[in-house]
Design a protein around this nucleic acid. Structure first.
Length: 872
RNA sequence: GGGCGCAUAGCUCAGCUGGUACGAGCGCUGCGUUGACAUCGCAGAGGUCAUUGGUUCGAAUCCAAUUGCGCCCACCA
């Protein structure tokens, strides 16, 4: 074994081994209980980013853990066609080549898309393998797969036939760049500083009313001026009309509750065709919808040629200028507000009226609310329950049609007799009248419509497949906060609708990783961290352990490479502890030899029991943490016990016992305990750090082909207590004394290896006599003597008192005085606490006892040290 | 405008249902190349747990307010 753990040589070996063993490939026919995770499908042409690395690592950890628990684990991977995102990429390429999709036409465009998927498709899967993920690659799905498409059409048809999908003109979020509608959830709101223009609208028959707007160009489409009902400033004007500048159109002054009297001038210009609020007002008052902006974001006002065809931002300037010329501009002021952008291309959205397909949400949201309220599905951290519920309760109809080229065609046709129907297999004739001149709907579906079906569509739904029966519903959904609405919520209502079951029992929302500077990671800002170089330099295990340590706390984290590095060092520590044990227990084959015969319980020494009881405690703590998805707790605990208790503590204590010339029963007990401890720790760590643990476990006696084939450690009832007995506290006390001795030596500048006499008194009787001396001298160079010692320094650790024969100087005396001061403070504090009737009367008895014990200890130490701060 | 979250050691973060006035990693100081590991060991310095009130025998932990960050939602043009 090399001196340092080298992930680069070890990782490929184990990736290959897992693949050979078929770890990850689920057997639907096994008798085991199932544990299922549906991987949130990344964009098929995507690259692994840090968020993926974290979320996927957590999933793999859960899956590996469940395999060891005896579950048939199905972690189904897949990819998403990401329609708008992919189309944008290809369109940019085409633009760079001086062409466009329109020039190519649909068939050639499709060729480009296929080539793109071909070239980059699945690239992310290869990157995922680097982290050792045990997905069921045999079941990998893609949202454009034939079966998947059938699932989508089936779902669509079901909703369509039930009247839950309808088509209708409404005001929508329109992206003039993609020339498509998008849903409310795909809006990226950004702060803009614009000019708020106050416009004077002349009233027919005299007077004027002033309205305020940041989008003066839309005034060309004004259909009314609205004021708040009962607004005293305007009461007289309601019912009268204004003559709009520039267009000369006569529009009414109306009252509507949507108007905020204290905003702006309290009078609102109403442009029903280009503003959602105004649209609602227009609906309520039967106003005409006057469209003045075309889908491409240019002005559509042929009767006003000076503005016609101008992009809206230019039109804004031109219209304002023209209004100024007519004297209609009263005032202009700077105004900061939020403007909607397309979350895929960043273009400013134009609300406009368009016929789109919608999912009626009222019937679907009810069960989705009930399922979460009742706890059928639980969010972790818990607070996201409220976020979800608030959204679901206020949900509006979902716009699912897109006017882009890439994606699933809306499975709807209309015949010459105007029969519109949805289908699963492309029809050749109208289902109602048999007419064969069918017109297919030109739109495609929102990508999220297909993602919404993911947890059951991957298993073959709507077919009653074996996989579907076996693996659905899934157990846990691990994902990022920003897709709770886009994805998680929609899976819940589609799952309930189509399978009558929640698609998963638990939702784990992982932490968001911020850039080093605390801002959002952003590729274009250049502060994004690429996980692949992290894997290269620190190893996959380190990245995974980091993900577990920071991903499930519920708190966002700043990226901190030191943290990853600390787990790299941890891997190295595990490696070297293993290496040491192999060196001492080698059977000549590079493996540890199990002691033969196995030691009897009575052969176990205090430190063996001390260690084993901590192992038992750790198993319980890790189980507890994992059962509630607190992976960070589990990994921190394992780090601590492995490094500090096992390596720094136990291994140091047993070094003398492992020497070749050490007495046999003792040596066997130490070997047995060390091997057992390492074995359990490796198994507990395996889900988090699979590579290093596999590699080290191979050095144990009789290794399994993979830790994935081993059982998860279990603690028999009473094992911990029975094994530890009173030894645990006694060894801790001794260790505390060791620390005191070392500190004193260090502070007094005692040369390394210089031995002094030491006399012991009192102490926990569980470890006494020769046993105590043996342990003590294994850790610190002292000669334990029986007779009383003159001079020297008194050291106290719990009930244990030691006189350490060291010539004391002023430094040690000062140190003793400091310690005495501390003790006095402690004593008076604890005294006061015990004198307090409120405390002794109400606190739990064990808490009171504990205070008594501490007070007692402090008094004893004080008594032992008294006099030491004086003299020379 | 509403809601949520966070403010703990120089830095990045733990700290469960209130009970040894709080831990880790990095950084810092001193010592150390004894056959696991210098990607290490040993010892140490460093925190009035943002502020102010309240509840309680007892508060980093519960409640309220304040300040400062961050995020989400929202049709105030």
């Amino acid at each position: 074994m090399d001196k340092a753990f080298d992930p680069r040589t070890v990782e490929p070996v184990w990736r290959a081994r897992w693949e050979e063993l078929g770890i990850g490939i689920a057997d639907a026919s096994s008798g085991r209980p199932s544990f299922t995770v549906a991987l949130p499908p990344p964009n098929i042409t995507g690259v692994l980013h840090l968020g993926h690395a974290m979320g996927f690592s957590i999933q793999d950890t859960l899956c590996r853990h469940h395999r060891m628990l005896g579950y048939e684990v199905e972690w189904c991977p897949g990819t998403d066609h990401a329609a708008i995102a992919t189309q944008n990429v290809i369109e940019r390429q085409l633009a760079a080549e001086g062409t466009s999709k329109e020039e190519l036409g649909r068939p050639l465009f499709q060729v480009r898309v296929d080539a793109w998927y071909e070239e980059y498709g699945g690239r992310i899967f290869d990157q995922m393998r680097r982290l050792g993920f045990t997905c069921d690659w045999s079941r990998a799905r893609f949202t454009l797969d034939e079966d998947y498409v059938r699932a989508i059409r089936t779902a669509f048809k079901n909703l369509f036939d039930s009247g839950l999908i309808y088509r209708g003109p409404r005001i929508v979020n329109w992206c003039p760049n993609n020339l498509s509608a998008i849903s409310d959830e795909e809006i990226d709101w950004r702060e803009h500083t614009d000019t708020m223009v106050h416009l004077r609208y002349p009233i027919e028959g005299g007077g004027e009313i002033v309205v305020a707007t940041v989008r003066p160009e839309t005034m060309l489409g004004d259909a009314a001026v609205a004021v708040a009902p009962g607004d005293p400033r305007y009461r007289e004007l309601v019912g009268r009309s204004v003559r709009l500048p520039l267009t000369g159109r006569i529009v009414p002054i109306i009252e509507d509750a949507a108007v905020q009297p204290d905003f702006g001038t309290g009078a609102l210009k109403v442009t029903p065709a280009h503003d959602p609020t105004d649209y609602d007002i227009g609906q309520r008052h039967g106003l005409p919808m006057i469209t003045v902006i075309a889908p491409d974001g240019t002005m559509d006002v042929p009767e006003l040629p000076q503005f016609h065809g101008l992009p809206t931002d230019q039109a804004r300037v031109a219209v304002t200028e023209a209004l100024r010329a007519t004297g209609a501009v009263l005032e202009e002021e700077e105004y900061v507000h939020e403007v909607g952008h397309c979350d895929r291309c960043g273009h400013v959205l134009e609300p406009l009226i368009s016929a789109q397909w919608w999912v009626r949400m009222t019937e679907l949201s009810g069960p989705a609310i009930a399922a979460v309220e009742s706890g059928d599905t639980n969010f972790h951290p818990r607070r996201y329950t409220d976020v979800y519920l608030a959204w679901m309760r206020n949900i509006r109809d979902w716009c699912i049609s897109r006017q882009i080229w890439l994606g699933h065609a809306i499975p709807v046709s209309t015949c010459a007799n105007d029969h519109t129907f949805a289908w699963i297999e492309p029809p050749s004739a109208c289902a109602t009248c048999g007419d064969t001149t069918l017109e297919n709907d030109p739109d495609v579906l929102d990508t999220w419509f297909s993602s919404a079906l993911w947890p059951f569509a991957i298993f073959g739904w709507p077919e009653e497949t074996e996989d579907l029966r076996r693996f659905y519903p899934t157990d846990v959904c691990v994902t990022a906060r920003d897709i709770i609405f886009l994805w998680v919520a929609r899976m819940i209502f589609t799952g309930l609708r189509f399978t009558a079951q929640v698609p998963f029992a638990d939702v784990i929302i992982t932490s968001t990783v911020q850039a080093v500077d605390g801002t959002r990671m952003n590729k274009s800002k250049g502060n994004a961290v690429d996980p692949l170089p992290m894997i290269d330099s620190h190893g996959a295990d380190a990245v995974r352990a980091w993900a577990a340590a920071v991903g499930t706390g519920g708190q966002d984290v700043r990226f901190n490479e030191d943290r990853i590095e600390s787990y790299q060092r941890f891997a190295n520590k595990i490696w070297n502890a293993t290496r040491f044990l192999v060196a001492r227990l080698d059977d000549g084959t590079g493996h540890m030899t199990a002691p033969d015969p196995e030691p009897a319980i009575d052969d176990l020494r205090p430190e063996d029991r001390w260690m084993l009881s901590q192992v038992a405690e750790t198993v319980e703590a890790v189980d507890e943490a994992l059962s509630s998805y607190r992976l960070h707790e589990a990994v921190e605990r394992l780090y601590d016990v492995t490094w500090h208790s096992f390596c720094d503590g136990y291994v140091e204590m047993i070094k003398p016992r492992l020497r070749d010339d050490a007495p046999d029963p003792s040596r066997r007990a130490a070997a047995h305990t060390a091997i057992t401890t390492l074995d359990v720790l490796l198994r507990l760590l395996h889900p988090f750090m699979p590579f290093i643990t596999e590699e080290c476990a191979q050095r144990l006696p009789d290794p399994a082909p993979s830790l994935q084939r081993r059982d998860w450690p279990r603690v028999a009832p009473g094992w911990r207590e029975g094994l530890a007995g009173p030894h645990r506290a006694a060894v801790d006390e001794l260790l505390q004394l060791v620390q005191r001795v070392r500190a004193l030596r260090d502070e007094s500048g005692v040369p390394r290896g210089e031995r002094h006499r030491l006399q012991l008194r009192g102490g926990d009787p569980a470890v006494a006599g020769e046993e105590r001396i043996r342990l003590l001298t294994a850790l610190v160079p002292v000669d334990v003597v029986n007779g009383a010692l003159d001079g020297g320094v008194t050291l106290v650790a719990g009930a244990l008192e030691a006189r350490y024969h060291l010539v004391v100087g002023e430094r040690e005396r000062a140190r003793a005085r400091r310690r005495l001061g501390e003790l006095e403070a402690t004593i008076s504090r604890l005294d006061a606490q015990l004198a307090n009737q409120g405390f002794t009367g109400r606190a739990r008895p064990e808490v009171v006892d504990d205070v008594r014990r501490r007070l007692d200890e402090a008094r004893r130490e004080h008594a032992a040290l008294r006099g030491q701060g004086e003299g020379s």
